[in-house]
Every structure is written in C-alpha cells, then in structure tokens.
Amino acid sequence: MKLRAIDLLFLAALIAGGSYYADHWLDLDEPIAIAWKGSGVGLLALWAFVRGRPWIGLVLAFGALGDMLLNAVGLTVGAVAFLIGHILAAGFYWRSNSSGVAVPAFITVSVSLSAYLLSGDIGVAIYSLGLGAMAGTALTSRFPFATVGLGALLFVLSDLLIFARLGPLAASPLPGLLIWPTYFAGQALIAWGVVSELAREDLHDRL
C-alpha cells in the first residue's frame, strides 16, 4: 500500500525522534544535538498541523520548543515551555471530560506530590501540577487510552525519571536510558491518538 505524503511525515517524525536516542552515546556539537532533539516532536507538530489539527499541533510545538530549550538554556526555561503545552493540552482534553473533577484532580495532586518527593524541589512540584493536569484530563477524556492515555502516562513517567535523577537515582544510569524513549513514545502516541480519533469523529459526522 502506497504511503501518502502526510503519512511519510509522521514516519519521518518517528525516525527523527527514535534515532535521537543514539545521542546518549554520541558526543555531538551542541547546535546539532539541539536541532536533532527538537526534530522528532517538531515533525509530529507539523504533521498535526498538516492534518488540520492546530490545537494538538500547538501543544506538540511547545513540547519541541521545550526539548531544545532544555539543552540550549536549561531546565527551568525548558520547563516553562512544557508547562504552557501542558496547560493547553489540559484545556483541550477537559472539553471532553465525562468523569467530573475528582479523578483529574487526584491524578494532578498525586503527580505533583510524587515529583516533590523525588526531587525535594517546590518548583518541580509546581511544574508537575501542569503535568498531572495534562495526564489527568487525558485519561478522563474521550480519547482512547491505548494511545492518548498511555502516551500521557509515559510522558509522566519520563518526567518522574528526570526528577528521580535529581534525587534518589542520581547515581543510577537507568534514568538516562529511559527518559528519552518513554518521553518520545508518549508524545508520538498522543499525536497519533488525538489526530486519528478526531479524523474518525469527522468521518462519522459526515456519514
């Protein structure tokens, strides 16, 4: 079956993001590493825009910006870009929430508390309120758990590994091996799940 140009764009995103894992062992010049790091989620964002889904495209674009700023400027500035994306995503998912406030609120507080216990940093806890809100609203939205819900959980896991590296796993190689694959897999699942579900709903509405 012949792939459409749009499908090839998603495939290019997977190749770019998946291959960045090799940077864990490579000593590349910083500009090259930064551009490579941002290319995976950046292409996912472009794919979402091309598919006519600007809302999730914007969320992904802030993720790509955060990826690059983490390396170029530092953790705090990169976290701000991610936090904006989390807030936008939570607002997007909340529009289709059907479980009320309790479950998303519980997940939000649990993620924030876990982040604080791992890092001992109140700033990390504040950022993680946005991370938890994104995950909580994604898990209680109309979007499939197998893609969007799982992707949100992988995103949370990736960030918790970062925070653990600031605390109890500071001497462990495990976070360095798992942070990127869990993060990028999460972003790819979210992108595919949201765009595919909205396309399915549009098709259903036309029938």
Rank of each mutant, 00 (worst) to 15 (best):
residue 2 K to R: 14
residue 4 R to W: 13
residue 4 R to E: 13
residue 7 D to N: 11
residue 14 L to G: 01
residue 16 A to T: 15
residue 19 S to T: 08
residue 20 Y to L: 04
residue 20 Y to H: 11
residue 21 Y to A: 11
residue 25 W to T: 12
residue 26 L to I: 10
residue 26 L to A: 15
residue 28 L to C: 03
residue 30 E to L: 14
residue 32 I to L: 15
residue 33 A to I: 04
residue 34 I to W: 02
residue 36 W to C: 06
residue 37 K to H: 09
residue 37 K to Q: 12
residue 38 G to N: 02
residue 38 G to D: 01
residue 45 A to I: 08
residue 50 V to E: 12
residue 51 R to K: 14
residue 55 W to G: 14
residue 57 G to A: 05
residue 58 L to A: 15
residue 59 V to R: 01
residue 59 V to Q: 01
residue 59 V to T: 08
residue 59 V to L: 02
residue 66 G to N: 14
residue 68 M to A: 10
residue 68 M to N: 03
residue 71 N to S: 12
residue 80 V to M: 13
residue 82 F to G: 00
residue 84 I to A: 08
residue 86 H to P: 00
residue 88 L to G: 10
residue 88 L to T: 09
residue 94 W to L: 15
residue 96 S to K: 07
residue 98 S to P: 12
residue 99 S to P: 02
residue 101 V to Y: 02
residue 101 V to I: 14
residue 102 A to R: 10
residue 106 F to Q: 02
residue 107 I to P: 02
residue 112 S to Q: 15
residue 118 L to E: 08
residue 122 I to P: 08
residue 123 G to H: 07
residue 123 G to P: 05
residue 124 V to T: 15
residue 125 A to T: 06
residue 126 I to F: 09
residue 127 Y to W: 09
residue 129 L to S: 07
residue 129 L to R: 04
residue 140 T to E: 01
residue 141 S to E: 06
residue 144 P to W: 01
residue 145 F to V: 14
residue 145 F to I: 15
residue 146 A to S: 13
residue 147 T to C: 06
residue 154 L to K: 04
residue 154 L to T: 05
residue 158 S to W: 10
residue 160 L to T: 01
residue 160 L to R: 02
residue 164 A to R: 09
residue 164 A to L: 11
residue 169 L to K: 05
residue 175 P to H: 03
residue 176 G to D: 05
residue 177 L to G: 12
residue 178 L to Q: 07
residue 179 I to Y: 14
residue 187 Q to F: 00
residue 191 A to V: 03
residue 191 A to W: 01
residue 194 V to G: 04
residue 195 V to D: 00
residue 196 S to V: 06
residue 203 L to M: 12
residue 205 D to M: 15
residue 207 L to C: 07
